[in-house]
Amino acid sequence: MELTRLDKEILNILQNDFPLVERPYAVIADRLGISEEEVLARVKVLKEEGVIRRIGGVIDAQKLGFYSTLCACHVEEDKVWEAAGIINQEKGVTHNYLRDDWYNLWFTLTSPSPEEGEKIIKDLEKRIGAEIKSMPAQKVYKIKAVFTGR
């Protein structure tokens, strides 16, 4: 899907300046000079096309006293979707994605404590039949996507 200028403007607002009001899409529409219905229609298309996975708040788990770790594992190709489904059932998993590498399945896990995180990882290892490498952050970086151009 090729993003239009309007799509990029909507995405930038959704990511960087989402209005915290009762009708945020009406505010976005007003900013862009279009109707609320048009904003909602564009967002729906962007979701259907997989450009938007979800819309929701991002919480800094460490600032709230939680433990977070990046995890990687090698899962046989014929079992990768099954393993991803099992991992995705864990409520502390915030991202889960495939990579074209030996460690082909990566995810982030947030838990109340390092001990609880380790317990969840051990349980997932048993359920998916693969060793999981846990890599807690030493330093946190925020990657920001901004869409420019036509």
Rank of each mutant, 00 (worst) to 15 (best):
E2P: 02
L3W: 11
L3H: 07
R5A: 10
R5K: 08
L6V: 08
D7I: 12
D7Q: 09
K8A: 10
K8E: 06
E9P: 03
E9T: 12
N12E: 08
L14Y: 06
N16L: 14
L20I: 02
V21E: 07
A26E: 15
A29F: 08
A29E: 02
D30S: 10
L32T: 01
L32F: 11
L32H: 03
G33P: 10
S35W: 13
S35P: 03
S35I: 10
E36T: 14
E36G: 14
E37I: 01
E37L: 00
E38A: 12
V39L: 07
L40H: 04
L40R: 13
A41Q: 15
V43C: 05
V43W: 14
V43G: 04
L46I: 10
K47Y: 13
E48D: 12
E48Y: 06
E49N: 13
E49R: 11
I52Y: 08
G56I: 11
G56H: 12
I59D: 06
Q62F: 14
Q62I: 09
L64C: 09
G65Y: 03
G65P: 06
G65K: 08
F66P: 00
Y67D: 08
T69M: 07
T69G: 06
L70F: 11
C71W: 04
A72N: 07
A72M: 11
C73M: 12
H74A: 08
V75C: 13
V75D: 00
V75Q: 04
K79S: 05
K79Y: 04
V80D: 01
V80E: 05
V80W: 00
E82G: 07
A83P: 05
A84M: 13
A84T: 03
A84L: 09
G85A: 08
G85E: 11
I86T: 03
I87T: 05
N88V: 09
N88W: 15
Q89Y: 12
E90W: 00
H95Y: 09
R99E: 03
D100N: 10
D101F: 01
D101T: 02
N104S: 01
N104R: 03
L105A: 02
W106L: 02
W106C: 00
F107P: 05
T110H: 05
S111P: 03
S111G: 07
S111L: 10
S111I: 04
S111D: 08
P112L: 13
P114C: 02
E115Y: 00
E116A: 05
E116I: 02
E118H: 02
K119R: 03
I120C: 06
I120L: 07
D123Q: 14
E125V: 05
I132F: 01
I132W: 01
I132K: 00
S134R: 14
M135N: 06
P136G: 06
P136Y: 03
Q138V: 08
K139S: 11
K139C: 07
K139F: 15
V140W: 15
V140I: 11
Y141L: 10
I143E: 15
V146E: 15
F147T: 06
G149M: 13
R150D: 11
